[in-house]
């Protein structure tokens, strides 16, 4: 099985247009220990509901894992396993490959879908080697990175997904630092470079788009990847009632573009023709508030430049592909 061999099967049939089309059965039980208004938990719940059948969940160490699995209780109504922080893609590889062997022996009828939920730390940083290996080997799995842009479980430390200028406990702002000094890693490009059939970004604020992308990913026979924007009110310093609003503004300001890479072709799935000012997104979060002070003006300009550049690059990639 190779990563790039699958034919496109996504498209129209995968489109989720209304709530009526989705399985309303919960796969994640209520009563878990996440903070009120936790973005990652919204992502997990929505993604699981987009599945036509129960997947096997492999969960990396991080917020989602710890809030759902304190012995002797579990929030998971589907098969679930947590092994460690950096190896979810490898654990999932083993689950998937072993099911293939068991099916060949006639001991199981068919393989179940495997989905990974890992944070940005578990994906962009410590887990990137295991992820790369699994993508290269072509294991059939949907790898979901829920991105809350820092290591939240250990108390809001920077990751390579933390945006430029953001405050975290290990990227504080001061007279020398503007907050985080480095740009966010382009994980989707890294994943797409492995030649996987489907990789996309999505946001909890755009649930139809998110669920459509899950369905599309599931239509491929190979590794697929979703990078899901999932605000964390604790770490980003905003009111828990604003989680979806913050995610929405990230999209509307072009801060977090929604796009997909299907068989190597980029497509912006939500063209933002009239972006809102970036300040609309920054000003409602404590982690960026310093950027609006006069002494951090340069950093703010730098961040805006990065946002524009990324949008231009995506537009270029998307139109280049169209012109082919």
């Amino acid at each position: 099985m190779s990563a790039g061999s699958a034919e496109p099967k996504g498209g129209e049939r995968a489109q989720v247009r209304s709530l009526l089309e989705i399985d309303r059965r919960e796969r994640l039980a209520p009563g878990h220990r996440a903070c009120a208004g936790c973005g990652p938990m919204i992502a997990v719940r929505q993604i699981l509901q987009a599945y036509p059948e129960d997947p096997i969940v492999v969960n990396a160490t991080g917020c989602v894992e710890v809030v759902t699995s304190v012995y002797p209780e579990t929030s998971w109504l589907v098969p679930w396993v947590h092994v460690a922080f950096e190896n979810s893609a490898a654990v999932a590889s083993g689950v998937e490959a072993a099911m293939r062997a068991l099916r060949r022996r006639g001991e199981i009828e068919r393989e179940r879908p495997v989905v990974v939920f890992a944070g940005d730390g578990g994906t962009f940083d410590i887990g990137i080697q295991a992820l790369s290996g699994a993508l290269e080997r072509g294991h059939r799995m949907l790898y979901v990175c829920y991105d809350n842009e820092a290591y939240m479980n250990t108390g809001i430390q920077r990751s390579s997904a933390t945006p430029y200028g953001a405050w975290t406990t290990t990227s504080p702002y001061g007279s020398v630092w503007p907050g985080k000094r480095e740009a966010k890693k382009d994980i989707v490009a890294i994943v797409a470079a492995h030649g996987v059939p489907y990789a996309a970004t999505a946001s909890i604020s755009h649930w139809k788009d998110l669920m459509t992308k899950v369905r599309k990913a599931l239509s491929y026979d190979g590794p697929t990847f979703l990078h899901v924007y999932a605000p964390c009110n604790r770490g980003w310093r905003f009111d828990p009632s604003l989680t979806v609003e913050v995610a929405k503004r990230a999209v509307e300001t072009r801060f977090f573009p929604l796009y997909e890479v299907e068989n190597g072709r980029y497509r912006i799935t939500l063209p933002v023709t009239k972006p809102r000012p970036l300040e609309d997104f920054l000003s409602i979060q404590g982690r960026f508030r310093h950027l609006l002070l006069p002494q951090y003006r340069e950093a703010l300009e730098e961040l805006k430049r990065m946002v524009d550049e990324r949008w231009e690059r995506l537009t270029r990639l998307a139109s280049a592909r169209r012109a082919e």
Partner: peptide, 26 residues
């Protein structure tokens, strides 16, 4: 050899994949 041979990218992943595999009963 009738099973699956998974040429992982590290020993950490080797044991991780074994753990995942063993959890299916294999």
């Amino acid at each position: 050899f009738k099973g699956e041979f998974v040429p992982v990218e590290s020993e950490h992943s080797a044991m991780s994949a074994c753990i995942g595999g063993a959890l299916t009963g294999a």
